[in-house]
């Protein structure tokens, strides 16, 4: 397939020889307005980009007498960013879109991710249940990150852990989505967990 005689010359030809980096994917999940895109923007080397993707929503229909979940494919806006680790390695951060009152099938976006960060606003804890359930079900290493809006957290970590019913093995951190170093440290917690799993 690859011609031996390049049809272009100079810089363009050199660029086509460029080997793409290995892309490592992490997922940032949580309810609406919880700070997903802000987190991506704080650490990404590009302004967060938005693209349309398809997710499958599983409607939790109480009116459905057949108990067959109604599945609909919906086009949603997905925000993402990236960070070049070195010329051969690039970290991609994808925010999971969706409506909180539905179940999710984010597989199309999440498949192959090394880990997830579930962002929580302690004033609206139940917004993140779907994300916690998803990562637990998929067996993807994840941490719960409480976004300290204005430096305030309404509940203690123990209260949040109890309310979310996450196991002791799931790290819980407080962070600030607007602070680059804070987002970096939250992602590191997830990566350390993923690493421990590969070694364990």
């Amino acid at each position: 397939m690859t011609p031996t005689e390049p049809l272009v010359h100079g810089a363009a030809a050199a660029q086509t020889a460029e080997r793409p980096p290995l892309p490592v994917k992490m997922v940032i999940a949580g309810g609406f307005g919880v700070g997903k895109t802000t987190s991506v923007g704080s650490i990404s080397e590009i302004e967060p980009l938005t693209t349309e993707a398809s997710i499958t929503e599983v409607a939790a229909g109480v009116d459905d007498l057949t108990h067959t979940p109604r599945k609909t494919t919906t086009t949603v806006a997905m925000d993402f960013g990236c960070l070049t680790i070195d010329p051969t390695l690039k970290l991609y951060l994808f925010g999971t879109p969706g409506q909180e009152r539905f179940g999710f099938m984010w597989d199309d976006i999440v498949e192959g991710a090394v880990g997830g960060l579930v962002i929580v606003d302690t004033r609206r804890l139940d917004d993140c249940y779907a994300a916690v359930d998803y990562f637990e079900h998929k067996g993807i290493p994840f941490a719960v990150a409480i976004n300290a809006f204005d430096g305030k957290v309404e509940h203690t970590l123990d209260e949040v852990r109890w309310a979310l019913d996450v196991s002791e093995g799931v790290p819980l951190v407080v962070f600030d989505a607007r602070e680059r170093g804070s987002v970096r440290d939250a992602l590191l917690v997830v990566l350390e967990l993923a690493l421990a799993r590969t070694e364990g």
Binding site: L83, I85, D86, L89, V114, L187, T198
Partner: peptide
Amino acid sequence: VLRRVIDGL
């Protein structure tokens, strides 16, 4: 690879 991402971050 995970270690390289961690070190890079």
